[in-house]
Amino acid sequence: MNRTEQPAPATPAHACFTLRFSSTPRGARLARRLCGERLDSWGVPYGSDDHDVLSLLVSELAANAVTHGHVAGRDFRVHLLAHAAPGTPSLTVRVEVTDTRGDALPEPAAPAADSAAGPARTGGRGLLLVEALADRWGCAPRPDGPGKTVWAEYTVARYGPPTTRGTGSR
């Protein structure tokens, strides 16, 4: 009998994760969840501040792709890239979200000056969060077709070995 096993996740020294998602709120939610699982497997544990920040970056960029980069029948792509400098405990994670609409490049909106749109406003703050939380962020035209790639980088000061779950017995 042949047994096929999934390979272990790549070491965070150079690891990447890429998937396409439907350009819907469900696709954005799935992107955040799957990226969260991958971050945990790379040693950025669930519940840590670093995991929360990276999950929020994925969430905001994916939501923007769905809201502002949506083209009917086209998906968006999420690419996570993690790299660690040899001999250091830090891990830099780059989050890239690519959509197929390149007619307007994103810029963070200035906070609203008038009180009617200020605190009660529920949208338009995503890139302000990205700018506040990421070490660096930017956008570029999509190299392999129409659209754009919006990216953010965040450095995790310390990350641990990949976690293992479900290894205990009852």
Rank of each mutant, 00 (worst) to 15 (best):
A10Q: 15
A120H: 01
C16E: 15
C16R: 13
G47H: 07
H79V: 04
R142A: 14
R77N: 05
P25T: 13
V78T: 03
P106M: 10
G47A: 09
A31S: 12
P111N: 01
V156E: 07
D49W: 12
G36R: 09
V71R: 13
A134I: 05
P161H: 14
T100Q: 12
T98R: 09
H83G: 11
S115T: 06
R29I: 00
T167P: 02
E96Y: 00
L129R: 05
R121P: 00
V78N: 00
A15H: 06
T164V: 14
D103S: 06
A117C: 09
T98K: 03
D40S: 10
C35L: 05
A13D: 14
S48E: 10
V156T: 03
W151A: 07
L127E: 08
F17M: 06
V58D: 00
V66R: 08
L61T: 05
E37D: 15
A10P: 13
G102F: 05
G102Q: 07
L133A: 04
V156Q: 02
F17G: 00
G166R: 12
Y154A: 01
M1F: 08
G124I: 03
D75K: 12
M1E: 14
D49E: 15
A63R: 04
E5N: 06
R74H: 09
V53E: 12
S55D: 13
R121V: 04
P111Q: 01
L133V: 00
D40R: 04
L81Y: 10
D144I: 01
A157Q: 13
S55Q: 14
R29W: 02
H70R: 11
V93T: 00
V78E: 00
A82V: 03
A110Q: 11
G123I: 09
A132P: 03
P25C: 13
S59Q: 14
W151D: 10
L56M: 04
R165E: 12
C139H: 15
E96P: 00
A63I: 06
H68K: 01
T24H: 14
E96R: 04
L133F: 03
R121S: 15
E96M: 02
L80P: 03
L30C: 09
D103P: 00
G147A: 02
G168P: 03
A113H: 07
L128G: 14
A152I: 02
A63H: 07
Q6M: 11
A84L: 05
T122A: 10
R38H: 14
P25I: 11
A65I: 04
F21A: 02
H51C: 11
T4C: 08
R165M: 05
A8T: 04
W137C: 11
R136W: 02
P45H: 15
P143D: 10
Y159Q: 05
H70F: 03
R32D: 11
G102E: 08
D50G: 09
H14A: 14
R165A: 10
E107M: 11
P141D: 15
S22Y: 01
R38L: 09
G126T: 01
